[in-house]
Nucleic acid binder design. Sequence first.
DNA 1: CTGAAAGCGCTTACAG
DNA 2: CTGAAAGCGCTTACAG
Lengths: 340, 340
Amino acid sequence: MVTLKDISRDLGLSVTQVSRALGDHTDVNPQTKQRVRAAADRLGYRPNAVARGLKTGRSGIVAMVVSGTRSPEVSAHLLEIVMGLSAEFSRIGLRFVLHVAQPDEDTAQLHEDLFLAGGIDGFIVISPQRQDPRIKALRRLGAAFVVHGRDPDQRHVHVDIDNYGVGYRLADHLLARGHRRIAFLTAGDHTFFSQERVRGLRQAYADRGLDCAAAQVIGMPMIAPEGYRATRDLLSQTQPPTAIIAGNTMLARGVYAAAAECNVAIPDRLSVITHDDGLDLFGTDTFDPPLGGTISPLSDAWVSVARTLQNMIAAQNDGLMECILPLGFREGGSIQSVLD
Amino acid sequence: MVTLKDISRDLGLSVTQVSRALGDHTDVNPQTKQRVRAAADRLGYRPNAVARGLKTGRSGIVAMVVSGTRSPEVSAHLLEIVMGLSAEFSRIGLRFVLHVAQPDEDTAQLHEDLFLAGGIDGFIVISPQRQDPRIKALRRLGAAFVVHGRDPDQRHVHVDIDNYGVGYRLADHLLARGHRRIAFLTAGDHTFFSQERVRGLRQAYADRGLDCAAAQVIGMPMIAPEGYRATRDLLSQTQPPTAIIAGNTMLARGVYAAAAECNVAIPDRLSVITHDDGLDLFGTDTFDPPLGGTISPLSDAWVSVARTLQNMIAAQNDGLMECILPLGFREGGSIQSVLD
DNA sequence: CTGAAAGCGCTTACAG
DNA sequence: CTGAAAGCGCTTACAG
């Protein structure tokens, strides 16, 4: 292993200067810098992150802890998220590692263990629940962390979208086109984002003087098989809905499958609208007809998440507590007016 | 942050003794140990892994680098593997982290970067190819690593199954029951395990004085959609096979789906046999009729992998270079004799 | 059984 | 612009 000492000996310089030269400090002779850099290359020097970490208190590593899962869809979704985050962090010179917990493991405890052992500068938390114990633990420890999404019960730095707006716009889009029997497939009520979307949906009804009790809000794990099952149920009602709001594209996949199987044409007999988080794997472009709805690419979120965490680590500042990403909309071909 | 110094000050002991007491060294007064442990608990001491790592050269962290993928099945498979490895490593006091590379990233380089930065004691490599560049890099660096599977072109510590035996037994089982038109769905020829299985299959033919040219060996990514597609093709032949060997349960899933769609009953008109690696997600018990074939649970492999890597890290010994796990067999209900 | 000291490889005031 | 020194928190010969 090549150390600073080896370079300093090789060059007849002090370790101090070598360190400063490599760190590109201003108060080093440019020529010296050149010599040092050349020697470092020649000897194959690689800074020891552990030593640097002990001195500076920073390792350059950020982590995410996730629970293992039985659902292939959730796994795939997760891995695409991790890929996006990894790419973004390596772009800004940080290393992103994943710790996969057992399904029954206490992830709050795991965050604590990882943090207290040192060597991890910060954490990413995704899919927060209300009163999220991971967030509680990280707050208590004073760790740097950024949440994608939001737990309204605790103050924390987060990157999120306007979920109230999502619910409002999706519902309003359908209501404006005459739909009255609408089903909303969303997550359970333990998630704030789902609560917000429902609130938005209700407001859209209220703004048109309609009774939102007419909307069927159905909570479920947001994966294709659940969307499929729920849609089968809905379509077998005597008065099936004329439109379904799928909380994400995985649910929409299930909706499409069920509709096809029941010979219910989209959009002729059933309009479908979704919120698209822009993941390749379940992209709306693979739907026929193309899925319409709100859009907010997760890849944009990761940029903000990574930058924000980097700032927190560097400056301990939590000035920018909240980042709400903009919402797009795509018409698609999956929504039809029932006004004619 | 509570350090050894804090405890030593609290107790009026030297840092040396505190360290030794906590490390449960033999040459410390039992009473002292008690006092130290009590104080550590009371003050909330957590050893700093970074400092320990700098001193001992060991961080207690092992890593695996994987490439991101577009296939949900592969993702799910991967995550189940990671869960298994994580569980096993945490059982023996090591921490397992995953680094997910971009699909186009140079993973050999990534291993090198991670290793040279320090802080990682060892690596797990899965799904090796021939002349695997990751293995080359790790060997060159002198890193501790264990391969699950094998690259016959390089010497390395590995845990594997007898893939020649898998090919032999699966083929022999079918041949003994009179099958002559057999298709073998397996991986491409760039993987040694598939080469070995094919070799085993050929030997089974030879041992019965049969011409193995009669077997259709078809290479493909080993996921359900590929198994489905291949089976559709096979069943549309004028002389379709009477038996299919699916290289894993994901392929078998595709075989079953295609057979059902073509109204080809299993096992009446088509026998199916597989090698089962015992992952929950694609378990043979969810097949109807139950899938038969060789079995070797990956969970067993992880135990060996983790132990072996731990030994390598502790002792730098590569005494146990090779661990070949035993092979089981389950009859199932998916294979029928064609001799009657 | 106990403690003073050295050192892992780095960074950074401090003094020149 | 440069270097000697301290120190991050730990472990471990070495001496008593």
